[in-house]
């Protein structure tokens, strides 16, 4: 494969689907790197690197990662799973929320090397066979976002909360439990409505 960088209008125009809004979901200009299984087994480990295996959304990846690499950055930069967002890099905003072995965590606070063998579910893993997860569907229907940047984290937290029997089902319990996910656009009213409407449709988070 050529690694030259050149504007690729042709691929851009081809990507413009007719039936759906294909906004930037496909490579524009230079060929973007696509999400694909990564196997670093044949690459020698560089000083300070460790080899780990991550099972992400059901797909196994073997990666050589430096010790200071953060789980969030490895998912985004190495696996091209950019649905999980960086909002602060300090565990303060919740935009990077994903599930590790079924538990919601801030992936910006977690070193990748500490996740060898873990099963990880990101926003990209919620949709099954072209069918949206009920929480995704509810967020869309209730306009439970504006800019959409915190949405992945909101949805991953919401799925975890709906599957956590220790969290009450009343509005104020949900508000309290969701308070680690900041939405600066302030779509909280609609996010709450979406979560409550999805309650009962959610079985087995991820």
């Amino acid at each position: 494969m050529s690694d030259s960088i050149s504007p690729n209008r042709r691929s851009f125009l081809k990507s413009v689907g007719v039936s759906s809004l294909a906004v930037a979901s496909a490579p524009v200009w230079v060929q973007a790197i696509q999400a694909a299984p990564v196997d670093d087994t044949q690459q020698s480990l560089q000083p300070g690197e460790q080899r780990i295996t991550l099972k992400v959304n059901g797909q196994a990846h073997t990666l050589n990662v430096p010790a200071n690499a953060i789980l969030l950055d490895v998912l985004r930069d190495r696996l091209q799973l950019t649905g999980t967002k960086k909002g602060c890099d300090h565990g303060q905003c919740g935009a990077c929320t994903l599930h590790v072995n079924g538990t919601a965590v801030n992936s910006c606070l977690s070193l990748a090397v500490s996740h060898d063998g873990d099963e990880i579910t990101t926003i990209e893993g919620l949709e099954k066979d072209g069918k949206l997860h009920p929480v995704q569907e509810a967020f869309w229907e209730h306009d439970a976002y504006q800019c959409g940047y915190c949405t992945s984290g909101q949805i991953m937290s919401a799925v975890a909360i709906l599957n956590d029997p220790s969290i009450g089902s009343d509005d104020s319990s949900v508000r309290e439990a969701m308070s680690g996910n900041i939405c600066r656009c302030g779509a909280y009213k609609n996010i709450l409505a979406a979560i409550q409407s999805a309650r009962g449709k959610v079985k087995g988070a991820s």
Binding site: D3, L21, I33, R76, T82, L132, Q136, D143
Partner: peptide
């Protein structure tokens, strides 16, 4: 009507500036 770009936002496929990983 619900947003025409809503599916991209709820699936994590809406691409923001830092989501564009380019070769090299």
């Amino acid at each position: 009507p619900r947003r025409v770009d809503g599916r991209l936002k709820v699936t994590g496929h809406a691409q923001y500036t830092a989501d564009h990983g380019l070769k090299r």
